[in-house]
């Protein structure tokens, strides 16, 4: 069974030794890390500045909460790319570990297709939902940031995540048969 452990060994080691992240994450990973890192840092910074502004200067940041919400949603769907690339979706491997090894590539390919399919349906529905929200001009409360573009962004991330999730195990299976 795999479940989010805070940081796995390799990553901790790399972080400790300050290795260049490209080696561990690959170029796509570094791009994701840079963009996601900026968004996470912004979320943290918003809270810190909002609290300091409110407590010391009686002037909180207008819309800090809704900006945090937008950043959170974007981070989750951007992170889906990282999870999909690493094939790190959380699974139960209670029984699968005991299955004979020749089955595994087929099992993984099927699981990948199922997951990719679900993600593509999710992507499709996110797109439609975003269009619906855009149709009535849905926006955030105080800053009136339109919400629909965020929905389209999430839909695109879900589609890419779905394709990667379905494709990676399938590619290994095909490669196995062509060798």
């Amino acid at each position: 069974m795999r479940q989010p452990v805070l940081m796995d060994e390799k990553q901790q080691e790399a972080a400790r030794k300050e290795l260049p992240p490209g080696k561990l994450l690959g170029p796509a990973g570094v791009a994701l890390a840079a963009l996601g890192g900026v968004m996470l840092t912004a979320m943290m910074g918003l809270t810190v500045c909002d609290v300091i502004g409110r407590y010391l200067f009686n002037s909180p940041i207008k819309g800090a909460a809704e900006l945090t919400e937008v950043l959170l949603c974007a981070t989750i769907f951007l992170g889906l790319g990282a999870v999909s690339l690493k094939e790190d979706h959380v699974t139960v491997d209670l029984v699968t570990d005991k299955m004979p090894s020749f089955i595994q590539p087929y099992r993984l390919a099927l699981a990948g297709l199922f997951s990719g399919g679900v993600l593509l349906v999710v992507s499709w529905r996110l797109w439609i939902y975003a269009a619906q929200i855009g149709g009535y001009g849905g926006s955030t409360t105080n800053l009136a940031i339109p919400i629909a573009p965020l929905g389209y962004f999430c839909a695109i991330c879900a589609a890419l995540g779905g394709l990667i999730t379905a494709f990676l195990p399938l590619k290994r299976l095909v490669a196995r048969h062509t060798v």
Binding site: Y136, G137, G138, S139, T140, T141, A144, P146, I147
Partner: peptide, 11 residues
């Protein structure tokens, strides 16, 4: 369904 219109800002 029931609710508060203001929960959908902009709408």
């Amino acid at each position: 369904t029931f609710g508060v219109q203001g929960y959908n800002p902009g709408r």
